[in-house]
Design a protein around this nucleic acid. Structure first.
Length: 835
RNA sequence: GCCGGGGUGGCCAAACUGGUCUAGGCAGCGGACUUAAAAUCCGUGGUCCCUUCGGGGGCAUGUGGGUUCGAAUCCCACCCCCGGCACCA
């Protein structure tokens, strides 16, 4: 476009390019760290962060939403006087790139880096205010060197360890999965039914932090209650007791975890999980040996889903052994049954069919005795005429010396009694399992461990990091990591004794990479250490974290665990990574989740070409409150485009018809009305953006302001104060819209004020202009609206009542009836109650 | 089953601490400009009834109750939708 010529229509492409070039040339969004000469210690800090993208193909609408929301906050805080760090990077390791590599035979790095280039280009075109000097991908050795370093730190402290355990195995992806990656018995990635396999794997001991992960919710400023609840449920803390049942025949102790020690006298049988390590020994030599072995094998083959299915009939086989109930010395029969799972508690339960639904089902299926030990009925819930199973509270019966006591009151006494005899103790049990981090896949961060026949497991010394990911020919896993084929890389020297050794060939779960990236952004080019303590302590915690709710458990809990572990190693001062969390809702189209197979996807690049980034970003923030989803419509985008064009035209007109630098002092009538509206908008937008994240109503307020300017402008251009008011109101609209439409905001503001809007402080509302001289008094009779009267703001209550009574329509409804009550809410309404 | 979050015009939604239900946008309808169209600008927006055409009234926030001068908002019961967890002992 010819720059000397004023364009006659809103041309977002030209405007957006213009401002993007300015920001790039001037490094506008680069922010200095403490310790550097450019560091500005006078401002408070704010770390605004969106979850880093996984680079696969091109960015989609979800990305656009995350970064539009985050950028609005970043801009708002900068103009509110904060020094804002707002970085970007890529979660570059992972399965999709690797699966693609298996198909094409090309190195996953290639597709990944192409995708990164595409993401970067889109982010630039969206005009997101990123400090690009901090950018990295987690697949780059300069990053994963420190991922490996953290692994070694965890290893040093015993928080990373290797052991054999039944683990979830995805037969399609040919790798193990973390508990968190198994959804309804299926692989989170590919949907294949997962199997349980006994394998030796690497784990992080996140369970060490189970209690702290719960307690430290108190340290958070603002997280969605739902996310906290989800994590709390996932951690699954339950208080109870460990009680030891003894198998006298074999001299074996079987501790069980129970939350109901008060029902111990009602235990009539005992159940072990099929995976319980002692099952085989118990059955050995009994008439049940064969049946038990068959049952265990069958359970092992059955998928997680088959075992845990909705209407699964209880199955199991007797072990032919007995254990002794520690409270009454009674010998009760043992069973193996798959309704007991090895992962929780001790893999063994005492069965109290009278007071537990699952035990009741098993007992009725196998015709086992059911003994009530707590009085009470639950007729609506119970399955039989005796009101059993009964899970409520009541007086204890059939419970020896505890008979007659309330079960809740006897609870502690029973536990104390068991503890004094060494037959039990109070315990807390967690549902949370250790985090399985090793993957038998290629495209991940190598685990920096070598195995030496002499020295065993040896960590790679820090000065030999990074352990570089070697190139291989074949990416497809075959039950072991593709890295095993890189013989030259695998065979190495033991760092300890110098003898022959082999490298660990598993790679790390990509959630490890993303558990600390927010720290590396702060000091991304540090070659000496993962981060300088001073720098990390200055910026941390993240003041506002933004992302999808799908990470409510996995990423958000792993990152919290990392922070706590790093804090305990005295590497950081903070214990929580994200002080405030905002989770956005998902955008749908035609009421359905966008997917390629459904053909209802929206390509941000295409729409950016057509309408410009400002329209897209503003539309996304306007269509619904960002916390909710919202259904995409092309008409909606066009509506926003029209609104931006309307503001742009207004800017051009105001610039042409008014002079810069005019004063709005002494504005009266419509001019004062417009000033009041501007101030109302400033106040409304400011409050809607920061604490509330109600961007849709913030944008609505700017629309109202623009509508008001259009309504009044032609009557105001004539006099100097009126003209100045139009100019000010228009530049204010541009200024308020800037967080959502940064290019247009900058353009219109510059046109009218000759300044860069991002360098201007966020406007402050003038309290004097927020107050009104008059208001519309609502008059009700018996709570129903009967009239509206304009009254002076300082009208006394008695006078309000008189005015109300004076209304014709009110008189009509009073109709001589007696007024029994007069409710007056000054500033709002008068309600006359008649009978 | 348990734990969260929801249900307001034709559609997306607004309504702050209980006080004018439906701001803003989309779609629609009417008008201005135009030879015409697009674009733009202005107007109009729940529903039913009455009207002397000024307006007036009834009913409306998933359903049914309750509290209150007054309820989308608070309480109770129920229906439906979305998300999470689920044989967790």
């Amino acid at each position: 476009m010819n720059e000397d010529q004023t364009p006659d229509r809103y041309d977002p492409q030209a405007i957006e390019r213009k401002w993007q070039l300015v920001w790039e040339a001037e490094n506008t969004w680069v922010v200095a760290n403490p310790g550097s000469p450019e560091f500005d210690a006078s401002k408070p800090k704010s770390y605004v962060l969106e979850m880093l993208p996984y680079p696969s193909g091109d960015p989609h609408v979800g990305h656009l939403k995350t970064y539009s929301v985050g950028d609005a906050i970043a801009h708002f805080r900068r103009r509110r006087g904060f020094s804002v760090v707002h970085p970007m990077g890529y979660d570059a390791f992972g399965l999709p790139a690797e699966n693609n590599a298996i198909q094409t035979g090309e190195h996953p790095r290639k597709a990944t880096e192409e995708s990164i280039a595409s993401f970067r280009e889109q982010f630039m075109r969206w005009g997101i205010s990123i400090d690009w000097t901090r950018e990295f991908g987690t697949h780059e050795p300069r990053y994963y060197r420190w991922t490996q370093w953290i692994f070694l730190k965890l290893f040093e402290r015993g928080l990373a360890h290797r052991h054999e355990a039944p683990v979830h195995w995805c037969p399609k992806d040919q790798t193990v999965l973390a508990n968190e990656q198994v959804i309804d018995g299926h692989c989170e990635r590919c949907g294949t039914l997962v199997e349980l396999r006994q394998l030796e794997q690497w784990f992080f001991r996140i369970t060490e932090y189970a209690q702290e992960l719960l307690d430290d919710f108190d340290l958070l400023e603002s997280w969605p209650e739902s996310v906290i609840t989800m994590q709390r449920n996932w951690i699954g803390r339950s208080e109870g007791a460990e009680v030891v049942f003894r198998c006298e025949d074999l001299d074996l102790d079987f501790p069980v975890f129970t939350t109901r020690p008060d029902t111990l006298f009602g235990a009539t049988f005992f159940v072990l999980a099929p995976e319980h390590p002692l099952v085989e020994r118990l059955a050995e030599g009994t008439e049940h040996e064969r049946a038990v072995r068959d049952y265990v094998n069958e359970s092992a083959r059955a998928s997680v889903e088959e075992r845990a299915g909705e209407e699964h009939q209880k199955t199991g086989v007797p072990l032919g052994r007995e254990v002794t109930n520690p409270v009454n010395g009674e010998r009760i029969p043992m069973f193996v049954a798959d309704y007991v799972v090895m992962e929780y508690g001790t893999g063994a339960v005492m069965a109290v069919p009278a007071h537990d639904e699952r035990d009741y089902d098993f007992a009725t299926t196998f015709d086992l005795p059911i003994r009530r030990v707590i009085e009470g009925t639950d007729p609506e819930e119970s399955q039989d005429e005796d009101g059993l199973p009964y899970t409520g509270d009541g007086a204890m019966v059939n419970s020896g010396r505890f008979d007659g006591q309330n079960n809740r009151e006897a609870y502690d006494e029973i536990v104390a009694w068991l503890e004094s005899d060494g037959r039990g103790k109070p315990t807390v049990n967690f549902r949370l399992r250790d985090w399985l981090v090793s993957r038998q896949r290629y495209w991940g961060c190598p685990i920096p461990i070598v195995y030496c026949d002499e020295c065993g497991m040896v960590p790679v010394p820090e000065d030999q990091l990074p352990v570089l990911l070697p190139d291989v020919e074949e990416y497809a896993p075959k039950g072991k990591s593709p890295l095993a084929a890189a013989e030259e890389w695998v065979n190495t020297e033991c760092p300890k004794c110098g003898g022959e050794a082999r490298r660990e060939t598993d790679t790390m779960d990509t959630f490890v990479d993303s558990s600390w990236y927010f720290l590396r952004y702060l000091d991304p080019n540090n070659d000496e250490q993962a981060w300088a303590r001073e720098v990390a302590d200055y910026w941390m915690p993240v003041d506002q974290y933004i992302g999808g709710v799908e990470h409510a458990i996995l990423h958000l809990m792993y990152a919290r665990f990392f922070m706590k572990a790093l804090h305990d190693m005295d590497l950081l001062s903070d214990r929580e990574p994200f002080a405030n969390l905002f989770t956005q809702g998902m955008i749908t189209r035609d009421g359905a989740k966008m997917s390629k197979s459904r053909g209802n996807t929206v390509s941000p690049a295409e729409y950016t070409d057509k309408y410009g980034a400002d329209s897209l970003r503003t539309y996304i923030c306007f269509m619904a409150p960002p916390i909710k989803g919202g259904d995409w419509t092309d008409e909606g985008v066009e509506g926003i485009f029209r609104f931006l064009a309307r503001l742009w035209r207004l800017g051009g007109e105001a610039a042409a018809r008014t002079d810069a630098g005019g004063s709005t002092d002494g504005a009266t009538g419509p001019a004062r009305e417009l000033l009041a509206k501007s101030n109302w908008a400033i106040d409304k937008v400011s409050r809607d953006i920061d604490p509330r994240f109600q961007f849709n109503t913030a944008i609505s307020a700017v629309m109202e302001l623009v509508n008001e300017i259009y309504r009044l402008k032609d009557g105001l251009y004539g006099d100097p104060v009126g003209a100045a008011t139009v100019r000010l109101a228009t530049s204010t609209a541009a200024s308020l819209l800037f967080p959502f439409a940064p290019h247009l905001g900058s353009e219109v503001y510059e046109l009218l004020e000759g300044k860069r809007v991002w360098e201007q402080p966020w406007p402050e509302a003038d309290p004097a202009l927020l107050e009104r001289d008059t208001y519309m008094l609502v008059v009700q009779v018996n709570g129903k609206l009967r009239d509206r009267i304009e009254v002076a703001s300082d009208t006394a209550e008695e006078e309000l009542v008189e005015l109300a009574k004076g209304s014709d329509n009110v008189q009509r409804h009073l109709d001589g009836k007696a007024i029994v009550k007069e409710v007056v809410v000054p500033g709002r309404l008068v309600n006359l109650v008649v009978r």
